[in-house]
Design a protein around this nucleic acid. Structure first.
Length: 140
DNA sequence: TTGTGTTTTACGACCTC
DNA sequence: GAGGTCGTAAAACACAA
């Protein structure tokens, strides 16, 4: 737990734009023309037919994954294979875990950035009000 | 219990390099 | 073509009523 806390602090010290330079522009398509994504078909194949249910990763597996994510958010294939064999997982699972983890991290960073901007905005509005009152008083 | 909201795992579609 | 993001399905989990 303490290590993941350290990673959280490290995370906060990095600017989100360093990792995702196009983070904001990616949200809006060019000309605002959003192409509707096609719906994913349900996988009637492997998972359901072979009764392989989605299972949660163990705490140890998650710990090791978090540790790796803390040191590097991107996953090269060599590292992916190594991690997968260490954890007894499919390399695909490791890749998916990293994808999802990056998405969660990005959301967290966005939330932090939003609340930071909101605080700045609020204090600016307050200052504007203060200055307006000051001008008002000096004119009357 | 069970209904409901949230989180986690997984994947398809699309994008970028 | 490999590996990324995005959006979403569905299982797993938490928890109030």
């Amino acid at each position: 737990m303490t290590t993941s806390m350290n990673h959280q602090v490290e995370d906060q010290m990095l600017l989100i734009s360093e990792y995702y330079p196009g983070i904001y522009t990616q949200l809006v398509t060019e000309q605002g023309e959003a192409k509707p994504r096609r719906r994913r078909k349900k996988n009637k194949g492997e998972a359901s037919s072979s009764c392989v249910r989605k299972r949660k990763l163990s705490a140890e597996q998650v710990n090791l994954l978090e540790l790796n994510f803390g040191s590097e958010h991107k996953l090269e294939s060599e590292r992916k294979d190594k991690l997968a064999s260490e954890l007894g997982l499919d390399p695909r699972q490791v890749a998916v875990w990293f994808q999802n983890r990056r998405a969660r991290w990005k959301n967290k960073m966005m939330e932090e950035e939003y609340s930071k901007l909101k605080t700045e905005h609020d204090s600016t509005v307050l200052e504007k009000c203060r200055l307006e009152t000051e001008v008002h008083l000096s004119l009357s």
